[in-house]
Structure formats: C-alpha cells, structure tokens
C-alpha cells in the first residue's frame, strides 16, 4: 500500500503560526502601555497597521498565485512592530504606505516569509522616514493631548537638557514612538518569548549591551562620559534589541551574535557621530545586509569531518515544497 505519510510520525506541536501568535501576544503589554500614554489613537493605529499588512500579504499572494500564508500572523506581527516604531501623530495614509512597502516590496517580492533579507518593519519605517519625514517626526508628550516635544535622545543630540528621569524613561512616560517608550512592558513581553524559547536572548543582550557600552565609552565630553542609562532607556534600543535583532532572518547561531554585535557597533556609531539621534533602524538594516557574510562563520562541524562546515550560500526557495 502506498502511503503519503513520511517518517518521522511524531512532530512537535510548534508551528509557524504558533510562534507568530506568541510574538503578537508578547507585544500586547507594550500596546496597553501605548494606549495609556498616548490615548486610543495608538491602538487604532496599531490595529490598522496589522490589518493592512495581513490584507496586503493576502492580496499579493492571491495575485501572484502563491501559497496563502497571510493568516500565519507573521504579517500581523510586522504591522504591529511597524506601528510601534511610529509616533502617535502619524497620519493613517503614511502608515498605510509603510505597511504596503514593508509587506509587498520588502517581504513578498523577495520571496515571502523567511526569504526577506532585511527586517520588513524597519524597512517600511525607513521608507516613510525618507519620503515623508515631516509627517512622522511629531513626537508628543504622554498624556498631554498632543503637546509635541523632542524625544530624549534628540534633545540630547541638540545638547539641550531633558527633564525626564531614568525611571520615567524606564516606565515609558516620555515622548517617543508608540510602542518603544515603556521599557518595562517591552521586557515583560520579551521575557514571555524567552520563556517560550522562541527568541535568541543572547543576540538581544549583545546588541543592547554593545550600543550602551560604546555610547558610554565614546561620550561627548571624552572617553567614559556618555549617558549610559539615557542611551539604554531613552529611545528604541530595547524594542529594537528585543524584536528586530531577534527576527529570524536566518544567520547561524554564532553568526547571529556577530550580527547583533555588528548592528550594535553601527547603531552606536550613528548615535555618536551622525545627526540621527536613534540609529536603531539604520544599524539593524545595515547589519541585515551583512547577514550573508556573517552566516559564513557557521562553525558547526559535520559529524566525522575535521574541517569546519560553512554555509556556502544563501539561496531562496524555502517557498517550494514537493507537492
């Protein structure tokens, strides 16, 4: 009797959808915080963004006659993260453009889930930041009915004294993008992901530590004078480290740590030398482009061989299956 059932007959219960669902769940505390600090518009923006991402993925897959994977929640996670990176004053149409760019151009045109070489959420943000930079730079003071203000890091960049304490920064009571302000709530979500064994916490630590340490060492007034806690808590570093670095754009386990380190160095570089106060977006995207070379550092040895095995080249094609 011919059978289509192939060994092994035991499969783990974890699926792509379950992983992505856990990512979405882990973002909920930060979303709650965003609503508390910035009002209901934060929630509407996030839901809108997630919906646009899922629907544009579905539409693209329908048009190009690919396997429909839009319901696996990966697009929803991208949409939420993208909204989290925007200030609450962002117009809906800008967010819509960012979502479309992230999902269709960055994710699907490169082959869909697993084949995008850069983080779609960050790329979408970069796109609108370049094209409509004025529209997404209006940061507001929390619980203030839209009084705009500079973020902690941009204030620091302009050498003005910020009036926020580190505790306020940790709890999220500062101007900033929707989901990045409350470090406490992001960390709660991240701990959930670590507990579920979904993310590589080491990579997040390497990234966050390298940025904080480098910006401290190369401070504005000489060596070891940087604002360590300000850099750590003032901007989107923790959100970037917890959710963007740990994204599964595959590089090997050790390669992933190098990737985090590279992203950290570039981010710190931007924070120290360039006009941009944050640098997270550029730092991680640049490191994403280095992933191909970093994955060559794979040093798991094949059983019975003396030399180290290298991942030879990245090829797309994870879409196909034999049916």
């Amino acid at each position: 009797m011919k059978t289509e059932y192939l060994a092994p007959y035991l499969r783990s219960c974890r699926s792509t959808k379950e992983i992505m669902r856990d990512v979405v769940i882990s973002l909920l505390p930060a979303l709650g915080g965003a609503v508390y600090f910035f009002g209901l518009r934060a929630l509407t923006l996030t839901l809108f963004s997630a919906a646009v991402c899922v629907l544009s993925e579905y539409g693209w897959q329908k048009i190009t006659k690919r396997q429909i994977t839009a319901w696996d929640l990966s697009a929803a996670a991208t949409g939420m993260l993208l909204a989290f990176n925007m200030p609450v004053t962002t117009p809906f149409w800008v967010l819509f453009a960012a979502d479309l760019f992230a999902i269709v151009v960055v994710k699907q045109m490169f082959g869909g889930i697993g084949n995008n070489f850069v983080n779609p959420a960050l790329m979408g943000r970069l796109f609108v930041m370049t094209v409509w930079s004025g529209e997404i730079m209006q940061y507001v003071i929390p619980k203030s009915d839209g009084v705009s203000s500079a973020t902690v890091l941009s204030a620091a960049k302009q050498q003005t004294q910020s009036s926020y304490t580190y505790l306020q920064m940790f709890l999220g009571d500062i101007p900033g993008a929707i989901g990045e302000t409350s470090k406490l709530l992001i960390l709660i979500g991240f701990l959930y992901l670590c507990w579920k064994g979904i993310v590589n916490a080491k990579a997040a630590l390497v990234y966050i530590a390298s940025v904080s340490v480098l910006t401290f060492v190369f401070g504005r007034e000489g060596l070891f004078t940087g604002d360590f806690l300000g850099n750590l808590l003032g901007g989107g570093l923790i959100l970037g480290g917890c959710y963007m670095i740990t994204d599964y754009a595959f590089v090997s386990q050790k390669g992933k740590l190098l990737f985090a380190l590279a992203a950290g160095v570039i981010t710190a570089w931007i924070r120290i030398f360039s006009v941009y106060p944050e640098g997270i977006c550029f730092g991680i995207l640049t490191a994403n482009c280095l992933a191909g070379i970093l994955s060559m550092t794979e040093n798991d040895r094949v059983y019975g061989t003396a030399e180290k095995h290298r991942i030879i080249k990245m090829k797309d094609g994870g879409q196909r299956s034999e049916q």
Partner: peptide
C-alpha cells in the same frame, strides 16, 4: 509552509548538517 529560517533544524541535527 515556507521555511522561516528559524534554525531549529540546525540545532537539532545530530550530524551537524544544515
């Protein structure tokens, strides 16, 4: 469904393959 490059198979492989 498509591979998401999570690397779980690499971690599990006893022969050290990808």
């Amino acid at each position: 469904t498509p591979c998401i490059r999570c690397g779980a198979c690499i971690r599990a492989c006893p022969a050290g393959l990808a």
